[in-house]
């Protein structure tokens, strides 16, 4: 299958002079189109730095990132903005909905930014809201919604532009276990029914077990990998726990 995302020898340093921290140390992997990949690791392993580099919020010190065959490391600030707008979708831990906008306005914001006409925007909103089961809360402001509803709105916003990759940063971080489960099922549906390519960073073993493939980072290097294949989620979960234990056991096991 075609690779949507290619990471080659990615390196990222922080600081300068004698105080330099190597956050990423030659990380390389590929993410296939329509796959659901989780990145796990202990605190400080480089998960967030990796996601920030892929989401073009941070620039790598060395190496290359190609999304749909296009290298994004040499793009200018404005080209990166256009790239983020058109090809990436985001789901964040804190939902990151704009508190001043209604659910509907939050979802269509990426379409407004690419100047999609009003009729098409409305149609896309109806589709994605129906899919996420949030059609009846589109006029509500984030503070009027539950945590689960907010995260579904965030998913809808990530999907509405049909991005090349949906990047999820600890998406269940602010949710209780019931809402976490609900969200992961939603993301699984996004992956299986809409063929969305999802790259998710998490430190939660249960959440990680929903992915087809789990990559482990340790000290900025790719350290281990679990492929789901034909196995059940519970079996994958057990594998994750085993790897996590050998990593130092810092991941949650709930």
């Amino acid at each position: 299958m075609k690779s949507n995302l290619v990471i080659e020898n990615l390196t990222k340093y922080y600081g300068s002079g004698s105080v330099v921290t190597k956050a990423l140390d030659g990380v390389s992997f590929e993410v296939e189109q329509g796959s659901f990949t989780a990145i796990m690791g202990a605190s400080g392993s480089g998960k967030s730095t990796l996601l920030n580099c892929i989401s073009t919020i941070d620039r790598p010190s060395a190496g290359d990132i190609r999304i749909e065959g296009k290298s994004i490391t040499q793009l200018s600030e404005n080209e990166l903005s256009v790239f983020r707008r058109d090809r990436l979708g985001f789901i964040f831990q804190e939902y990151n909905l704009l508190d001043t906008l209604t659910a509907g306005e939050n979802i269509v914001l990426p379409l407004n930014l690419r100047k999609t006409d009003a009729a098409e925007t409305r149609k896309s909103l109806e589709n994605v809201a129906g899919l996420m089961g949030i059609a009846d809360i589109l006029d509500k402001f984030p503070r009027e919604m539950s945590g689960g509803q907010r995260q579904r709105v965030a998913c809808a916003r990530a999907l509405i532009t049909q991005p090349a990759v949906v990047l999820a940063d600890e998406p269940t971080g602010a949710l209780d276990s019931a809402n976490s489960r609900q969200l992961m099922k939603t993301m699984q549906r996004m992956n299986t029914e809409l063929s969305s390519t999802i790259l998710m960073v998490t430190h939660d073993a249960v959440v990680g077990s929903y992915a087809d493939r789990v990559l482990f980072l340790k000290d900025g290097k790719l350290w281990n990998e679990i492929l789901k294949g034909e196995r059940t989620r519970e079996e994958v979960y057990a594998d994750i726990l085993a790897v996590t234990a050998s990593l130092g056991g810092e991941s949650d096991v709930g």
Binding site: S55, I57, E77, N78, S81, V82, F83, R84, R85, D86, L88, F90, N96, L98, D99, T100, L109, P110, L113, R114
Partner: peptide, 19 residues
């Protein structure tokens, strides 16, 4: 502080620095 978070989000969604 509130505005900073909002503008940060806009930036993530692809609004250029000029925008």
């Amino acid at each position: 502080d509130d505005d900073k978070k909002r503008y940060e989000l806009l930036f993530r969604f692809g609004v250029s620095p000029d925008g």
